[in-house]
């Protein structure tokens, strides 16, 4: 049976979809049969980030409602053999998701895949609740910024109390993924440090993704950033995937480059 991983954050715009796409693609690159499901009904974007927006015929909601078979809605990625995408509806709203329906589709996907990556919408409403409800483990995405950390803390509380695992009396393994980390600003005391965020949230760190122009560039062309060999963010995501697979690798925390006086003169007067 597939392991279900939810990527969630509470707050919007922190990098959930980028992270879901990167983790799902990263797992598939490692040879694991993986499907990524978009839970953001009405505001779908996984298709766009994965570059398959023109191939969506049937979606998750069609399968839940019995209007299409699962194999009709699953889109096979053209770059990575083991990867599939289950897009969601752009026209329906969150009420189209039911606990019974989502449970049934995840149950059907279970024997076909090694990993099911659930891309949660922002917020804590139905879509976000159902994205995490069936999860076996969670990746909590946060930026080193006060509102994001507060929302992540709320999500951690909900994962611990409102998931199916919690209801069965089991613990929910959770990982913290810090995204858009700007080492230069941390150095200047303008941004929370990794250590601060981790201490506040008290969840094991999965990785730190540096703020990186390649993330926008990858989304422009519909390619998960993890496929960009030259991107520092892509590299950080590949390392995070290793840790999801249980490989013990040291977490590389981005550090600001040491700057000499001359360099500082140039930059600070710029």
């Amino acid at each position: 049976m597939a392991k279900v991983i939810v990527v969630t954050s509470g707050k919007g715009g922190v990098g959930k979809t980028t992270t879901s796409a990167a983790i799902a693609t990263g797992l598939a690159l490692r040879g694991f049969k993986t499907v990524i499901i978009d839970f953001d009904v009405g505001l779908r974007n996984v298709d766009l980030i994965m570059g398959c927006e023109r191939r969506v015929v049937f979606d998750f909601i069609n399968v839940i409602n019995g209007d299409a078979k699962l194999h009709q809605a699953l889109i096979k990625d053209k770059r990575v053999e083991a990867l599939s995408i289950l897009a969601t509806s752009q026209t329906r709203d969150k009420d189209a998701l039911t606990e019974e329906g989502v449970g049934r589709v995840i149950g059907e996907l279970g024997p076909l895949f090694d990993y099911i990556v659930c891309d949660s919408p922002a917020g804590i409403e139905r879509g976000a609740h159902l994205a995490m409800y069936f999860a076996d483990e969670a990746v909590v995405v946060a930026n080193a910024e006060v509102s994001s950390v507060r929302d992540a803390d709320r999500m951690i509380g909900l994962l611990t109390s409102k998931s199916r695992r919690a209801e069965l009396g089991k613990t929910m393994p959770q990982h913290l993924l810090l995204t858009r980390y700007d080492a230069e600003r941390v150095e200047r005391g303008e941004m929370l440090k990794v250590e601060d965020v981790q201490e506040i949230l008290a969840v094991p760190l999965l990785g730190v993704i540096p703020e990186c122009p390649s993330v926008l560039q990858a989304s422009n062309i519909g390619m998960p950033v993890v496929l960009d060999d030259k991107s520092p963010a892509g590299k950080a995501y590949r390392e995070a995937v290793c840790r999801i697979l249980g490989e013990e690798t040291d977490i590389v925390i981005p550090r600001a480059a040491k700057r000499g006086l001359f360099d500082r003169l140039l930059r600070r007067t710029a």
């Binding site: 006060v146 803390d153 200047r188 303008e190 929370l192 440090k193 506040i200």
Partner: peptide
């Protein structure tokens, strides 16, 4: 650099959470 705003962010979060 003098004490940055990140210190304030950490303290506010610790109390709030």
């Amino acid at each position: 650099p003098t004490r940055g705003t990140a210190v304030a962010a950490r303290e506010r979060l610790q109390i709030l959470l």
